Simulated assay, not measured.
Amino acid sequence: MLLAGHSLTVWARRPESAQDLVGKGAVLAQSVEDLAKTCDYVGVCVVDDAGVEDVCSKLIPALAAGSVLVIHSTILPSTCEDLARRCAEAGIQFLDAPVSGGSPAASAGTLTVMCGGTPETFEHALPVLQTFGSKIVHLGPAGSAQQAKIINNSLMAANMGLAFSALDIADKVGVDRAALSDLIKHSSGRSFGFEVFARLPTPDAFAHGAKLLLKDVELLGSMLGPDAGANALATAALPFLDATGATRKTDR
């Protein structure tokens, strides 16, 4: 955003994580409320529903009418639907806009941005989203972008789970693991998830990423509801996620 000529004010729950942006010219807000009073466009990127709720409970009362609140976290669609309602009551525009691509795409400004909200809010937010995203899609009303992101991340987890099973089979039948990994990258079984898994020395080397993917697979279960039963994405993903040491909610 700074490179695109926008002014930027930042706040972080861990102050040290904002220092890089401050060093590049961003202004550091002293509190969430201070951020809201300074900005007419606020993007939120924290880990989970609880974090989003905590930040937004302070942001929404402090934002001026006509401001834009954008949620980049991956959370429950119903949380975004509730936030959209609360924002509408306060005269604030709301967009849920989770992203995909990771740190490399963020640094290059080529993230994929999935958007849910009114068409008017999407168009209003687009110039800012274009400063860090190259594929930006409006999917429908608030919450719809979260639905798409949860499906996307669960598919990534399932592909890594299938890669875990495939390479385990290769080991058992005596196929050279490295040769097979290279072969699949050029064959019809390839996927981004397979390529990520094939680079891992052991499953637990993906422990940090696995916690986030497990969160999103659990969000898929919550989104589908108790009557959905076991779904194919979770069924494929969970053996791999268990192997990383990620802990399911039911195990906590």
Rank of each mutant, 00 (worst) to 15 (best):
A105Q: 01
L155I: 11
L59S: 06
F194A: 04
R86K: 13
R252H: 14
I60R: 00
D49W: 12
G101K: 08
V10Y: 03
V68I: 08
L155Q: 11
M156L: 12
F164E: 07
S103G: 05
T118H: 01
G66R: 03
S144Q: 08
K249D: 13
F94M: 11
A84C: 05
I75R: 09
V128A: 11
N159S: 10
L8Y: 06
K37D: 14
E218N: 15
P239C: 13
S134P: 13
L155R: 02
A29M: 02
V68D: 02
K215I: 13
P239D: 13
L238C: 07
D49Q: 03
V22C: 02
P98N: 03
G174E: 12
E81F: 09
G245C: 05
L69F: 00
R252V: 14
V128C: 03
G133T: 01
S67K: 00
F122W: 11
P77N: 09
A4I: 09
P104I: 10
I71R: 04
S57L: 11
Q19L: 12
G209F: 10
T79L: 09
R13Y: 13
D49I: 12
D82T: 04
Q30T: 10
A148R: 06
A210S: 07
S165N: 10
S57W: 08
A36H: 00
D168A: 15
V175N: 07
R177C: 04
L59D: 01
D227P: 01
L3C: 05
K185Y: 05
H72K: 12
S103M: 09
S100W: 04
S78A: 13
P77I: 07
G5V: 00
V32I: 15
D171F: 06
R190T: 11
A90P: 04
F164M: 10
L59K: 00
